Amino acid sequence: MRDLIELAARVGYGARGFVYLSVGVLILLASVDLIGGAVGTKGALDWLAQRPLGRVWALLIGLGLAAFVMWRLLQAVFDADHEGLSLNGMGRRLSQLFSGLSYAALAVAAFGLMAGAPADPAGDGVAQSQARAAAVLALPLGQWLLVAAGLAIFGVGVSNIVKACREDFTEYLACSKRLCRRVAPLARAGHVARGLAYLPLAGLVVLAGLDERASEVTSFGSALEAVERQPAGPWILAAAALGFVAFGAFSFIEARFRRIRPPRELKSPL
């Protein structure tokens, strides 16, 4: 069982790396106008699903992400990384739990693509985002709930940037000090890119809440396209793309060298 858990975790890190590497490459191609527009993680899955053997890609990525979700749950609930019950440890485990939930949603989306990719992935993503925003606005205090959602997205972005500055990304790697020094910048660049990429979307969601107009909400990829239309936008987008590629590359490093310590007993210390 321990060997199976370790294998699943490594496959999961590899699947995450493949998704972010795909996102980075597609954003880079969009920045030089070789494809229609920038995409996020869901958009990258949609794009892959439209290629030859698209359903096979969707199945493999979905299984890999499901394995990663399992590992995130072991980290968060069963304390696989031995973080303990300190304030810092609980903060890390809570972050791992939310990460697991987000990748669970992405895995579900990947399995859904086995039925066929949307004809217009970009337009479909915007429509879904606007439908969710309209549903929130229809609730009591919906305007402020949407503002809160935008601030939460902003918080996720800022937390990634703070993590890039403060985290020791080599702590859990079983590799030489020389190799660790070389790969740590990949993780820092990747987290900065992820953090900055969330900020335009957060701003649009907050404005949509303040204006009470769901039509102002857009998708992750469309928010990046708005950045591209600004002065020096293509350069900013290209830098973000390289950051996503770096994050994907570091995920592959984790798939190979991360210390995977399955819990001795599947019993929550909580």
Rank of each mutant, 00 (worst) to 15 (best):
V136Y: 00
V136G: 00
L137A: 07
L137C: 07
L137E: 04
L137H: 01
L137G: 03
A138D: 12
A138C: 04
A138I: 06
A138S: 13
L139Q: 15
L139G: 06
L139M: 15
L139R: 15
P140K: 07
P140H: 07
P140Q: 10
L141H: 12
L141D: 10
L141K: 03
G142N: 04
G142H: 01
Q143L: 04
Q143N: 13
Q143G: 12
Q143S: 13
W144C: 03
W144Q: 10
W144R: 03
W144F: 14
W144P: 02
W144G: 02
W144K: 01
L145W: 11
L145F: 11
L146T: 10
L146I: 09
L146C: 14
L146W: 09
L146P: 07
V147G: 07
V147L: 06
A148T: 03
A148P: 00
A148E: 01
A148W: 00
A148K: 00
A148S: 14
A149Y: 12
A149N: 07
G150W: 00
G150V: 01
L151G: 04
L151T: 03
L151C: 08
L151M: 11
A152M: 15
A152N: 09
A152P: 12
I153S: 02
I153D: 01
I153A: 10
I153C: 09
F154H: 06
F154R: 01
G155H: 08
G155C: 11
G155M: 11
V156Y: 13
V156P: 03
V156M: 12
V156D: 09
G157K: 02
G157S: 09
G157P: 06
V158G: 03
V158A: 14
V158T: 07
S159H: 13
S159K: 11
N160M: 12
N160G: 07
I161V: 14
I161R: 08
I161D: 07
V162Y: 09
V162E: 07
V162P: 04
V162H: 05
V162I: 15
K163Y: 06
K163C: 04
A164S: 13
A164F: 01
A164L: 01
C165Y: 04
R166H: 09
E167N: 04
E167C: 06
E167F: 08
D168R: 08
D168Q: 08
F169I: 05
F169V: 05
F169K: 02
T170V: 12
T170R: 10
T170A: 14
T170H: 02
T170P: 02
T170W: 02
T170C: 06
E171W: 04
E171M: 06
E171V: 04
Y172L: 11
Y172G: 05
Y172S: 09
L173N: 01
L173H: 00
A174E: 14
A174I: 07
A174L: 10
